[in-house]
């Protein structure tokens, strides 16, 4: 097993770990963190496998994609945090109502 694959496997693990946390935790902050862990997992898979060029320099395209992905993730996280604060201010709880259907 080479290093690139090892990191990629960690990335896959993080993705599913984050998914588990996203589903089981009710608190919005935990859900937002879970999404971020999932995102990091995906980015890790993208970047790690870029090292398989067979040369010293990795493939730059996935690196650029990850920078794009990180910026998107930052924006999404900022919006999510602001929204979570508003939900808490409005409903008194930092959780989503249990029954989404009226």
């Amino acid at each position: 097993m080479n290093t690139a694959l090892l990191y990629a496997l960690v990335g896959a693990g993080l993705f599913f770990l984050g998914l588990y946390a996203l589903i089981v935790h009710a608190h919005l902050l935990r859900k937002i963190l879970a999404i971020n862990v999932m995102g990091s997992g995906v980015f890790l898979v993208l970047v790690a496998l870029a090292a398989r060029t067979g040369e010293a320099a990795p493939d730059p395209v996935p690196h650029a994609m990850v920078i794009t992905g990180i910026v998107v993730a930052v924006s999404a996280t900022a919006l999510a945090l602001a929204l979570a604060l508003r939900v808490q201010a409005e409903t008194g709880r930092a959780e989503l109502p249990e029954e989404p259907l009226e």
Partner: peptide, 28 residues
């Protein structure tokens, strides 16, 4: 509306990340 938007955001991000992981696999 705020709870609806929050749930929508989480679902939307989850969907995008699953999609992106698929993109990563296809590219690699």
């Amino acid at each position: 509306a705020l709870s609806g938007a929050m749930r929508y955001l989480l679902v939307s991000l989850l969907g995008s990340l699953a999609y992106l992981l698929g993109v990563a696999l296809l590219y690699h």
